[in-house]
Design a protein around this nucleic acid. Structure first.
Length: 369
DNA sequence: TCTGGGGTCCTAGGACCC
DNA sequence: TCTGGGGTCCTAGGACCC
Protein backbone atom coordinates (compact mmCIF):
# COMPACT_ATOMS: atom_id res chain seq x y z
CA UNK A 1 0.00 0.00 0.00
CA UNK A 2 1.57 3.26 -1.13
CA UNK A 3 1.15 6.58 0.57
CA UNK A 4 -1.01 7.73 -2.30
CA UNK A 5 -3.38 4.83 -1.72
CA UNK A 6 -4.44 6.31 1.57
CA UNK A 7 -6.47 8.81 -0.38
CA UNK A 8 -10.26 8.94 -0.50
CA UNK A 9 -11.41 9.81 -4.01
CA UNK A 10 -14.95 9.86 -5.36
CA UNK A 11 -16.23 9.67 -8.92
CA UNK A 12 -19.64 10.96 -9.96
CA UNK A 13 -21.31 9.83 -13.17
CA UNK A 14 -24.69 11.19 -14.25
CA UNK A 15 -27.05 8.36 -15.30
CA UNK A 16 -27.83 8.22 -19.05
CA UNK A 17 -27.14 11.92 -18.94
CA UNK A 18 -28.24 13.33 -22.32
CA UNK A 19 -31.36 11.16 -22.42
CA UNK A 20 -32.20 11.94 -18.79
CA UNK A 21 -32.02 15.70 -19.49
CA UNK A 22 -34.41 15.29 -22.41
CA UNK A 23 -36.84 13.38 -20.17
CA UNK A 24 -36.51 16.06 -17.52
CA UNK A 25 -37.32 18.87 -19.95
CA UNK A 26 -40.16 17.02 -21.69
CA UNK A 27 -42.31 15.04 -19.23
CA UNK A 28 -43.99 13.26 -22.15
CA UNK A 29 -40.70 11.39 -22.68
CA UNK A 30 -40.47 10.04 -19.15
CA UNK A 31 -40.68 6.27 -18.89
CA UNK A 32 -40.18 5.98 -22.65
CA UNK A 33 -37.19 4.95 -24.75
CA UNK A 34 -35.16 8.05 -25.65
CA UNK A 35 -32.12 7.92 -27.92
CA UNK A 36 -29.90 10.97 -28.30
CA UNK A 37 -27.36 11.15 -31.11
CA UNK A 38 -26.76 12.06 -34.75
CA UNK A 39 -29.98 11.83 -36.76
CA UNK A 40 -28.42 11.69 -40.22
CA UNK A 41 -27.95 8.47 -42.17
CA UNK A 42 -24.49 8.01 -40.64
CA UNK A 43 -25.28 9.06 -37.09
CA UNK A 44 -24.43 7.06 -33.97
CA UNK A 45 -26.03 6.86 -30.54
CA UNK A 46 -24.55 9.19 -27.92
CA UNK A 47 -26.82 8.17 -25.03
CA UNK A 48 -29.78 5.82 -24.71
CA UNK A 49 -32.24 5.99 -21.80
CA UNK A 50 -32.58 2.87 -19.69
CA UNK A 51 -35.91 2.13 -21.37
CA UNK A 52 -34.10 2.09 -24.73
CA UNK A 53 -31.29 -0.05 -23.33
CA UNK A 54 -33.76 -2.84 -22.61
CA UNK A 55 -34.20 -3.07 -26.42
CA UNK A 56 -30.46 -3.52 -26.78
CA UNK A 57 -29.67 0.06 -27.81
CA UNK A 58 -26.35 1.38 -26.49
CA UNK A 59 -23.77 4.11 -26.90
CA UNK A 60 -21.70 4.29 -30.10
CA UNK A 61 -24.17 2.07 -31.95
CA UNK A 62 -25.09 3.18 -35.48
CA UNK A 63 -28.47 4.94 -35.45
CA UNK A 64 -29.68 2.69 -38.24
CA UNK A 65 -29.21 -0.30 -35.94
CA UNK A 66 -30.87 1.47 -33.03
CA UNK A 67 -33.93 2.27 -35.14
CA UNK A 68 -34.27 -1.36 -36.06
CA UNK A 69 -33.94 -2.53 -32.45
CA UNK A 70 -36.21 0.16 -31.09
CA UNK A 71 -38.60 1.36 -33.80
CA UNK A 72 -40.88 3.19 -31.37
CA UNK A 73 -38.07 5.09 -29.67
CA UNK A 74 -37.90 8.85 -29.47
CA UNK A 75 -34.87 10.00 -31.47
CA UNK A 76 -33.38 13.38 -30.62
CA UNK A 77 -30.28 15.32 -31.59
CA UNK A 78 -28.09 16.46 -28.68
CA UNK A 79 -28.54 19.92 -27.11
CA UNK A 80 -25.07 20.47 -25.72
CA UNK A 81 -25.69 23.97 -24.42
CA UNK A 82 -28.48 22.65 -22.18
CA UNK A 83 -26.35 19.73 -20.96
CA UNK A 84 -23.56 22.18 -20.17
CA UNK A 85 -25.89 24.25 -17.94
CA UNK A 86 -26.74 21.24 -15.80
CA UNK A 87 -23.17 19.99 -15.86
CA UNK A 88 -22.04 23.36 -14.48
CA UNK A 89 -24.59 23.13 -11.66
CA UNK A 90 -23.37 19.69 -10.70
CA UNK A 91 -19.77 20.88 -10.78
CA UNK A 92 -20.60 23.82 -8.54
CA UNK A 93 -22.02 21.39 -5.98
CA UNK A 94 -18.74 19.47 -6.08
CA UNK A 95 -16.70 22.65 -5.79
CA UNK A 96 -18.66 23.70 -2.74
CA UNK A 97 -17.32 20.52 -1.08
CA UNK A 98 -13.70 20.65 -2.25
CA UNK A 99 -11.54 22.57 -4.73
CA UNK A 100 -10.02 19.24 -5.77
CA UNK A 101 -12.42 18.56 -8.65
CA UNK A 102 -11.36 17.03 -11.96
CA UNK A 103 -13.86 17.18 -14.79
CA UNK A 104 -13.74 14.29 -17.27
CA UNK A 105 -16.67 15.22 -19.49
CA UNK A 106 -20.09 16.85 -19.28
CA UNK A 107 -21.39 13.97 -17.18
CA UNK A 108 -18.38 12.79 -15.16
CA UNK A 109 -16.06 14.21 -12.53
CA UNK A 110 -13.70 13.10 -9.79
CA UNK A 111 -13.58 14.85 -6.43
CA UNK A 112 -10.91 14.25 -3.83
CA UNK A 113 -12.17 14.03 -0.24
CA UNK A 114 -8.84 13.06 1.35
CA UNK A 115 -8.30 16.36 3.10
CA UNK A 116 -11.88 17.10 4.04
CA UNK A 117 -12.65 13.58 5.26
CA UNK A 118 -9.87 11.82 7.19
CA UNK A 119 -11.67 8.44 7.18
CA UNK A 120 -13.64 6.42 4.64
CA UNK A 121 -16.71 6.59 6.90
CA UNK A 122 -16.66 10.37 6.78
CA UNK A 123 -15.95 10.37 3.05
CA UNK A 124 -18.91 8.06 2.45
CA UNK A 125 -21.18 10.36 4.44
CA UNK A 126 -20.05 13.36 2.39
CA UNK A 127 -20.27 11.56 -0.95
CA UNK A 128 -23.81 10.37 -0.15
CA UNK A 129 -24.76 13.93 0.70
CA UNK A 130 -23.39 15.08 -2.66
CA UNK A 131 -25.48 12.46 -4.44
CA UNK A 132 -28.59 13.64 -2.61
CA UNK A 133 -27.87 17.27 -3.41
CA UNK A 134 -27.48 16.46 -7.10
CA UNK A 135 -30.90 14.80 -7.12
CA UNK A 136 -32.57 17.61 -5.21
CA UNK A 137 -30.97 20.44 -7.17
CA UNK A 138 -31.12 18.97 -10.68
CA UNK A 139 -33.93 16.38 -10.50
CA UNK A 140 -31.50 13.89 -12.05
CA UNK A 141 -29.87 10.79 -10.62
CA UNK A 142 -26.21 9.96 -10.64
CA UNK A 143 -23.99 7.10 -9.57
CA UNK A 144 -21.09 7.62 -7.20
CA UNK A 145 -18.05 5.49 -6.50
CA UNK A 146 -15.65 5.98 -3.60
CA UNK A 147 -12.23 4.41 -3.28
CA UNK A 148 -8.56 4.89 -2.45
CA UNK A 149 -7.67 6.05 -5.99
CA UNK A 150 -9.20 7.27 -9.24
CA UNK A 151 -9.38 3.87 -10.90
CA UNK A 152 -11.36 2.29 -8.06
CA UNK A 153 -13.59 5.35 -7.65
CA UNK A 154 -14.55 5.19 -11.31
CA UNK A 155 -15.05 1.45 -11.21
CA UNK A 156 -17.29 1.88 -8.16
CA UNK A 157 -19.54 4.36 -9.96
CA UNK A 158 -19.96 1.85 -12.83
CA UNK A 159 -20.67 -1.19 -10.68
CA UNK A 160 -23.93 0.01 -9.16
CA UNK A 161 -25.60 2.21 -11.73
CA UNK A 162 -28.10 3.68 -12.22
CA UNK A 163 -28.70 5.69 -9.06
CA UNK A 164 -25.90 3.75 -7.41
CA UNK A 165 -23.43 4.17 -4.61
CA UNK A 166 -20.44 1.90 -4.19
CA UNK A 167 -17.47 2.08 -1.84
CA UNK A 168 -14.38 0.02 -2.59
CA UNK A 169 -12.23 -0.15 0.52
CA UNK A 170 -8.54 -1.05 0.23
CA UNK A 171 -9.17 -4.35 2.03
CA UNK A 172 -12.02 -5.27 -0.34
CA UNK A 173 -10.20 -4.57 -3.59
CA UNK A 174 -9.32 -8.14 -4.52
CA UNK A 175 -12.81 -9.49 -3.93
CA UNK A 176 -14.32 -6.82 -6.19
CA UNK A 177 -11.71 -6.82 -8.95
CA UNK A 178 -10.78 -10.48 -9.33
CA UNK A 179 -13.96 -11.78 -11.01
CA UNK A 180 -14.33 -8.88 -13.47
CA UNK A 181 -13.51 -9.37 -17.16
CA UNK A 182 -10.27 -7.55 -18.10
CA UNK A 183 -12.23 -5.28 -20.45
CA UNK A 184 -13.65 -3.50 -17.40
CA UNK A 185 -10.25 -1.98 -16.66
CA UNK A 186 -9.96 1.66 -17.68
CA UNK A 187 -7.72 1.72 -20.75
CA UNK A 188 -8.46 -1.82 -21.91
CA UNK A 189 -10.56 -1.58 -25.07
CA UNK A 190 -11.53 -4.20 -27.61
CA UNK A 191 -8.08 -4.59 -29.13
CA UNK A 192 -6.23 -5.04 -25.85
CA UNK A 193 -8.96 -7.26 -24.45
CA UNK A 194 -8.59 -9.60 -27.46
CA UNK A 195 -4.84 -9.65 -27.07
CA UNK A 196 -5.16 -10.50 -23.41
CA UNK A 197 -7.71 -13.20 -24.19
CA UNK A 198 -5.21 -14.63 -26.67
CA UNK A 199 -2.80 -15.00 -23.76
CA UNK A 200 -5.45 -16.80 -21.73
CA UNK A 201 -6.07 -13.74 -19.58
CA UNK A 202 -9.83 -13.36 -19.30
CA UNK A 203 -10.45 -11.95 -15.84
CA UNK A 204 -8.71 -9.45 -13.64
CA UNK A 205 -7.57 -12.31 -11.42
CA UNK A 206 -5.73 -13.87 -14.40
CA UNK A 207 -4.06 -10.54 -15.08
CA UNK A 208 -3.03 -10.15 -11.46
CA UNK A 209 -1.42 -13.62 -11.44
CA UNK A 210 0.34 -13.40 -14.83
CA UNK A 211 4.14 -13.15 -14.51
CA UNK A 212 5.19 -9.51 -14.92
CA UNK A 213 7.91 -10.30 -17.47
CA UNK A 214 5.40 -12.05 -19.75
CA UNK A 215 3.04 -9.07 -19.64
CA UNK A 216 5.87 -6.66 -20.30
CA UNK A 217 7.16 -8.72 -23.23
CA UNK A 218 3.70 -8.86 -24.81
CA UNK A 219 2.38 -5.38 -24.03
CA UNK A 220 5.38 -3.23 -23.20
CA UNK A 221 4.91 -0.50 -20.66
CA UNK A 222 1.16 -1.00 -20.79
CA UNK A 223 1.64 -4.49 -19.33
CA UNK A 224 3.19 -3.11 -16.19
CA UNK A 225 0.49 -0.52 -15.80
CA UNK A 226 -2.32 -3.03 -16.33
CA UNK A 227 -0.98 -5.33 -13.66
CA UNK A 228 -0.90 -2.48 -11.17
CA UNK A 229 -4.53 -1.74 -11.97
CA UNK A 230 -5.36 -5.45 -11.59
CA UNK A 231 -4.03 -5.19 -8.05
CA UNK A 232 -6.16 -2.09 -7.52
CA UNK A 233 -3.14 0.23 -7.46
CA UNK A 234 -3.31 3.58 -9.22
CA UNK A 235 -0.95 6.39 -8.28
CA UNK A 236 -2.11 8.91 -10.87
CA UNK A 237 -2.70 12.20 -9.10
CA UNK A 238 -5.91 14.17 -9.42
CA UNK A 239 -5.54 16.17 -12.62
CA UNK A 240 -5.79 19.89 -12.61
CA UNK A 241 -8.02 21.38 -15.21
CA UNK A 242 -5.40 20.99 -17.91
CA UNK A 243 -5.25 23.38 -20.85
CA UNK A 244 -6.31 21.82 -24.16
CA UNK A 245 -3.45 20.45 -26.27
CA UNK A 246 -5.28 20.52 -29.59
CA UNK A 247 -8.35 21.92 -31.32
CA UNK A 248 -10.12 20.27 -34.25
CA UNK A 249 -13.28 20.14 -36.32
CA UNK A 250 -14.35 17.21 -38.41
CA UNK A 251 -17.45 16.21 -40.33
CA UNK A 252 -18.69 12.90 -41.66
CA UNK A 253 -20.80 13.77 -44.68
CA UNK A 254 -24.13 12.09 -45.15
CA UNK A 255 -23.02 11.32 -48.71
CA UNK A 256 -19.43 10.95 -49.88
CA UNK A 257 -17.97 14.08 -51.48
CA UNK A 258 -16.49 13.54 -54.94
CA UNK A 259 -16.21 17.07 -56.32
CA UNK A 260 -12.71 18.44 -55.63
CA UNK A 261 -13.98 22.01 -55.46
CA UNK A 262 -16.54 21.01 -52.88
CA UNK A 263 -13.90 19.15 -50.87
CA UNK A 264 -11.67 22.24 -50.91
CA UNK A 265 -14.53 24.44 -49.81
CA UNK A 266 -15.20 22.13 -46.86
CA UNK A 267 -11.53 22.13 -45.86
CA UNK A 268 -11.56 25.94 -45.87
CA UNK A 269 -14.75 26.05 -43.82
CA UNK A 270 -13.35 23.68 -41.19
CA UNK A 271 -10.03 25.56 -41.09
CA UNK A 272 -11.86 28.84 -40.59
CA UNK A 273 -13.82 27.36 -37.69
CA UNK A 274 -10.65 26.14 -36.02
CA UNK A 275 -8.92 29.50 -36.54
CA UNK A 276 -11.93 31.27 -35.09
CA UNK A 277 -11.79 29.16 -31.95
CA UNK A 278 -8.04 29.70 -31.66
CA UNK A 279 -8.54 33.45 -31.76
CA UNK A 280 -11.46 33.43 -29.34
CA UNK A 281 -9.30 31.51 -26.85
CA UNK A 282 -6.27 33.76 -27.48
CA UNK A 283 -4.12 30.86 -28.63
CA UNK A 284 -1.55 30.30 -31.36
CA UNK A 285 -0.76 26.97 -32.99
CA UNK A 286 2.48 25.60 -34.40
CA UNK A 287 1.03 22.47 -36.00
CA UNK A 288 -1.71 22.26 -38.62
CA UNK A 289 -3.16 18.92 -39.63
CA UNK A 290 -5.75 17.50 -41.96
CA UNK A 291 -7.65 14.23 -41.79
CA UNK A 292 -9.43 12.47 -44.63
CA UNK A 293 -11.45 9.28 -44.40
CA UNK A 294 -12.35 7.39 -47.58
CA UNK A 295 -15.53 5.38 -48.12
CA UNK A 296 -13.65 2.17 -47.25
CA UNK A 297 -12.87 3.78 -43.85
CA UNK A 298 -9.16 4.00 -44.48
CA UNK A 299 -8.11 7.22 -42.76
CA UNK A 300 -5.14 9.46 -43.51
CA UNK A 301 -3.74 12.31 -41.45
CA UNK A 302 -1.05 14.73 -42.57
CA UNK A 303 0.48 17.47 -40.50
CA UNK A 304 3.19 20.06 -40.66
CA UNK A 305 5.05 22.05 -38.05
CA UNK A 306 5.72 25.73 -38.37
CA UNK A 307 8.57 27.81 -37.03
CA UNK A 308 6.20 30.21 -35.32
CA UNK A 309 2.76 30.13 -33.75
CA UNK A 310 -0.09 31.32 -35.97
CA UNK A 311 -3.82 31.98 -35.69
CA UNK A 312 -4.74 33.66 -39.00
CA UNK A 313 -7.68 31.96 -40.73
CA UNK A 314 -6.28 32.61 -44.19
CA UNK A 315 -2.96 30.99 -43.35
CA UNK A 316 -4.45 27.95 -41.66
CA UNK A 317 -6.81 27.48 -44.61
CA UNK A 318 -3.90 27.72 -47.03
CA UNK A 319 -1.80 25.20 -45.12
CA UNK A 320 -4.71 22.78 -44.84
CA UNK A 321 -5.37 23.03 -48.58
CA UNK A 322 -1.69 22.46 -49.25
CA UNK A 323 -1.70 19.31 -47.12
CA UNK A 324 -4.81 18.10 -48.94
CA UNK A 325 -3.36 18.57 -52.42
CA UNK A 326 0.27 17.64 -51.91
CA UNK A 327 0.17 14.99 -49.24
CA UNK A 328 -3.16 13.14 -49.31
CA UNK A 329 -3.42 10.37 -51.92
CA UNK A 330 -6.87 11.45 -53.14
CA UNK A 331 -8.77 8.88 -55.16
CA UNK A 332 -11.84 9.26 -57.33
CA UNK A 333 -13.90 7.20 -54.89
CA UNK A 334 -14.69 10.35 -52.93
CA UNK A 335 -14.25 11.14 -49.25
CA UNK A 336 -16.46 10.27 -46.30
CA UNK A 337 -14.93 12.54 -43.65
CA UNK A 338 -12.80 15.66 -43.60
CA UNK A 339 -11.13 17.12 -40.53
CA UNK A 340 -8.84 20.05 -39.81
CA UNK A 341 -6.96 20.43 -36.56
CA UNK A 342 -4.24 22.43 -34.86
CA UNK A 343 -1.85 21.54 -32.05
CA UNK A 344 1.28 22.75 -30.25
CA UNK A 345 -0.80 25.50 -28.76
CA UNK A 346 0.62 28.47 -26.93
CA UNK A 347 -0.95 31.51 -25.34
CA UNK A 348 -0.95 34.49 -27.70
CA UNK A 349 0.62 37.78 -26.67
CA UNK A 350 -2.70 39.52 -26.13
CA UNK A 351 -3.66 36.92 -23.54
CA UNK A 352 -0.19 36.92 -22.00
CA UNK A 353 -0.46 40.65 -21.36
CA UNK A 354 -3.75 40.21 -19.56
CA UNK A 355 -2.31 37.37 -17.49
CA UNK A 356 0.64 39.49 -16.45
CA UNK A 357 -1.76 42.30 -15.70
CA UNK A 358 -3.58 40.01 -13.28
CA UNK A 359 -0.43 38.60 -11.77
CA UNK A 360 -0.74 40.24 -8.37
CA UNK A 361 -4.11 38.74 -7.60
CA UNK A 362 -4.00 35.61 -9.76
CA UNK A 363 -0.32 34.82 -10.10
CA UNK A 364 -0.48 31.51 -8.27
CA UNK A 365 -3.38 30.08 -10.19
CA UNK A 366 -1.98 31.34 -13.49
CA UNK A 367 1.32 29.63 -12.72
CA UNK A 368 -0.46 26.42 -11.79
CA UNK A 369 -2.63 26.38 -14.89
C1' DT B 1 -25.61 -3.35 -38.39
C1' DC B 2 -22.15 -0.30 -40.83
C1' DT B 3 -19.61 2.41 -38.13
C1' DG B 4 -19.77 10.64 -34.72
C1' DG B 5 -16.94 14.24 -32.93
C1' DG B 6 -14.09 15.89 -29.54
C1' DG B 7 -10.09 14.82 -27.39
C1' DT B 8 -5.50 12.25 -25.01
C1' DC B 9 -1.55 9.36 -25.09
C1' DC B 10 1.72 5.95 -27.07
C1' DT B 11 4.75 3.84 -30.55
C1' DA B 12 7.69 3.35 -34.39
C1' DG B 13 10.53 4.98 -37.86
C1' DG B 14 13.20 8.45 -40.38
C1' DA B 15 16.02 12.70 -40.65
C1' DC B 16 19.50 15.07 -38.72
C1' DC B 17 23.30 16.29 -35.67
C1' DC B 18 27.45 15.54 -32.90
C1' DT C 1 33.07 -0.63 -48.23
C1' DC C 2 29.74 -1.83 -45.43
C1' DT C 3 28.17 0.77 -41.61
C1' DG C 4 28.41 3.59 -34.13
C1' DG C 5 25.72 5.47 -30.65
C1' DG C 6 22.90 8.68 -28.66
C1' DG C 7 19.73 12.51 -28.63
C1' DT C 8 16.13 15.36 -30.59
C1' DC C 9 12.62 16.57 -33.65
C1' DC C 10 9.07 15.32 -36.64
C1' DT C 11 5.39 12.49 -38.78
C1' DA C 12 1.73 8.89 -39.21
C1' DG C 13 -1.10 5.71 -37.32
C1' DG C 14 -3.64 3.58 -33.77
C1' DA C 15 -5.85 2.55 -29.17
C1' DC C 16 -8.69 4.49 -26.08
C1' DC C 17 -12.03 7.55 -23.57
C1' DC C 18 -16.66 10.02 -23.15
Amino acid sequence: VTVLDTRRIAHLDMDAFFAAVEQLDDPALRGKPVIVGGLGPRGVVATASYEARTCGVGSAMPMAVARRLCPHGNYLRPRFARYKEISDRVRSILRSITPMVETISLDEAFFDLSTRCPTFDLAEETARAVKTRVRVETDLTCSVGLGPNRFLAKLGSELDKPDGFCVILPEGVREVLDPLPVGRIWGVGQVTERRLQGLGILRVRDLRLTPANLLERELGSMGRRLQQLARGEDDTPMGREAAARSISREVTYSHDLTDLLEIEAEVRKLAAHVADQLQREHLLCRTVRIKVRFPDFRTHTRQLRLGVGVDAAGLIEQLAIHLLHDRIPLRDTGVRLIGVGVADLSVSSARQLSLFGGEKSHGRSAAAA
